[in-house]
Design a protein around this nucleic acid. Structure first.
Length: 596
DNA sequence: TCTGGTTGCGCG
DNA sequence: AAAGCGCGCAACCAGA
């Protein structure tokens, strides 16, 4: 082991050092200065890593914005792999560069002028490690039932150094390095937040969850039977259909039974059933709602995902091509509103919930520089703003028009309303219309910070070629047109959804640092379920596209709320400078996270 | 009995 | 069978 570096490193690259005998896995750390030059190298036992990182984080002190006093940026193969053991040992990283997440962005970004070297390092093109099965994720290749091999990225030091050098070179020669750096920093911070939220868990009131299930479905059945209220509701439906044996869980048989009862529907989906007045419909819709609750978030889900008063879903940062997060297991992105009351703060703590009203149209107004659209939403509900500005007659119309513009609606009510937006907000509409045109042509588009859409696949290209052949049939042309339209709606939405996701990541990243600067409180007995890093301070527990929930000691709740607001303002400035767009929050503090 | 594809619905 | 984007998941179902 070498001595501490003479100067503070700007970055510390972490990685495993190949087998050295009996002392177990060893970890190497290479210190880099701000120019990327090596200024130190340290080796230590894996067990000593948390202590080492803690020293670097605590010892640095000072203002992180100030180069001399900054803590290092930790360069890691994969946040989902390195963070959990550190968090378990009570150590968190202030900043990192996640090589896997960064690689995915850089290999595709239009801003990167020389992507070849990054793309050639295909061992970094990896599906995210499955955090739900960490022991399997350690293997180089996973055999995953049905999905084949899932390659994992390399975790050794030499590979990390080489990849970091490739990425740094790609960023430096990029068209707009500042934007890319911002994007990669935000993406990596998201990786830290995801690992930390999983470690902390959402405080979950199992008794309240059980009470809700019992109230709506009846008491928990013995074994895997259906609860009593559900059985009764099913009986009601069968009587109304005069079909005592029909299986309501089988769409095919249910559809046949509905037809026999004279109900003329093409499917058993909710929206279509709603158009019928038959007495079987109301109880059937209720039954479907009950069945959904039972299978998606019933007692079985509770047993599997909630433990020790904490719900710990698996988040997948960067899991959606637009940059949104995905989830893998636990259904973190689909917690039904019915169960919101089950999110409950610990004794002596509060939940601070906040969401951004109309995030996507605001992101569109900001990135397109559409002053009229920005003004319509400034300081108020954007949809009502459109009504006030005389663009549409009602708030509902405004919503349909705006969603239609972002999703590419061409028919129905939305199709009729979108032209009014085109007239009133030409800059915003030009941006999404151009993105759609690029997609129809088979091209790619990029978000505000430079995340680029995936090009259409080989199948898509084949369809277009087939339609251009001299012997193409009408059906060929129709298929190709249809596929081109689909791709156009995808790229249209990509720039908006992706830029909104960037704003949300910047919000999250800034909020995380603000919360980490709040003082620690006296330990309370209950919150220890949040783990050593989070049991004495306000911390993030939930994030869903445009919404955050912070679990905060009661005496810190107001400070946490202020941090959420300040982070939102800061994210807007960071991405869009002085553009006259604001991102107003609906914020509430309470024992439970109730919305509406 | 296993499995890939489809349906339906929850979230933004 | 949504018009109009992005997801995950459970259940059913047809074919192996």
């Amino acid at each position: 082991m070498t001595s501490a570096p003479a100067q503070r490193p700007a970055a510390c690259v972490l990685g495993a050092v190949p087998g050295t005998g009996f002392e177990g896995q060893r970890i190497g750390i290479v210190d880099l200065d701000s120019a990327g030059q090596k200024i130190g190298r340290i080796d230590l036992a894996e067990a000593d890593l948390p202590e080492f990182v803690r020293d670097r984080e605590d010892g640095a002190g000072g203002d992180p914005c100030e180069p001399g006093g900054a803590r290092p940026r930790w360069v890691l193969s994969d946040t989902a792999k390195w963070c959990p053991p550190l968090l378990a040992a009570g150590v968190s990283l202030e900043r990192c560069h996640d090589l896997r997440l960064a690689h995915a962005i850089l290999a595709r970004s239009e801003l990167v002028t020389a992507p070849e070297a990054v793309r050639a390092a295909s061992e970094w093109d990896a599906a995210p490690a499955d955090a739900a099965a960490p022991e399997q994720a350690a293997a180089l290749f996973d055999v995953d039932a049905g999905r084949g091999f899932i390659p994992q990225v390399p975790h050794d030091l030499e590979a990390a150094l080489a990849e970091y050098a490739r990425q740094t070179a790609a960023i430096e020669t990029a068209g707009d390095p500042g934007r890319l750096r911002l994007l990669l920093a935000a993406e990596s911070a998201g990786g830290l937040v995801a690992a930390e939220m999983r470690a902390a868990g959402v405080p979950w009131d199992e008794a309240e969850h059980d009470r809700i299930l019992t109230e709506l479905l009846g008491p928990r059945p013995i074994r895997d039977g259906k609860p009593q209220k559900m059985l009764a509701k099913a009986e009601e439906v069968r009587e109304a259909l005069e079909d005592p044996r029909v299986n309501l869980d089988s769409p095919n048989r249910l559809l046949a039974s509905l037809r026999n009862a004279g109900i003329n529907v093409a499917s058993t989906s909710k929206w279509e059933l709603q158009t019928s007045e038959h007495p079987a419909i109301a109880p059937l819709l209720e039954y479907k709602k009950m069945a959904r609750l039972l299978s998606a978030n019933g007692w079985h889900w509770l047993d599997e995902w909630v433990d020790d008063g904490r719900y710990r879903p698996v988040y997948v940062p960067g899991g959606v091509v637009t940059g949104r997060w995905a989830a893998s297991g636990g259904g973190a992105l689909q917690i039904p509103r019915q169960l919101r009351p089950a999110l409950r703060a610990d004794e002596g703590w509060r939940l601070v919930s906040a969401d951004v009203a109309q995030l996507e149209p605001r992101a569109l107004a900001a990135m397109s520089g559409d002053r009229a659209m920005a003004e319509a939403g400034f300081g108020k509900d954007l949809y009502s703003g459109l009504v006030d500005a005389g663009v549409v007659a009602t708030r509902q119309e405004a919503k349909i028009a705006v969603l239609g513009a972002m999703y590419g609606s061409t028919t129905g009510e939305a199709g009729a309303l979108v032209p009014r937006l085109r007239q009133n907000f030409p800059a915003a509409m030009h941006l999404v219309d151009s993105a759609a045109e690029a997609g129809r042509q088979g091209g790619v588009v990029s978000t505000w910070l430079g995340r680029t859409s995936p090009p259409p696949g080989e199948g898509w290209q084949r369809l277009q070629r087939a339609a251009n052949r001299f012997d193409a049939t009408g059906a060929d042309e129709q298929r190709a047109r249809r596929a081109a339209g689909d791709q156009g709606r995808f790229t249209r939405n990509f720039v908006v959804q992706g830029t909104a996701a960037e704003w949300a990541l910047a919000w999250l990243a800034d909020l995380r640092l603000r919360l980490a600067r709040l003082p620690e409180i006296e330990a309370t007995s209950e919150a220890t379920a949040s783990g050593p890093v989070f049991s004495r301070r306000a911390h993030l527990v939930f994030f869903l596209h445009d919404e955050v929930i912070v679990h905060a000691p009661t005496e810190q709740a107001e400070d946490a709320a202020e941090a959420i607001r300040a982070a939102a303002a800061s994210a807007g400035r960071l991405l869009f400078g002085d553009a006259p767009v604001d991102f107003p929050l609906d914020l509430s503090i309470g024992e439970r996270a109730i919305k509406d």
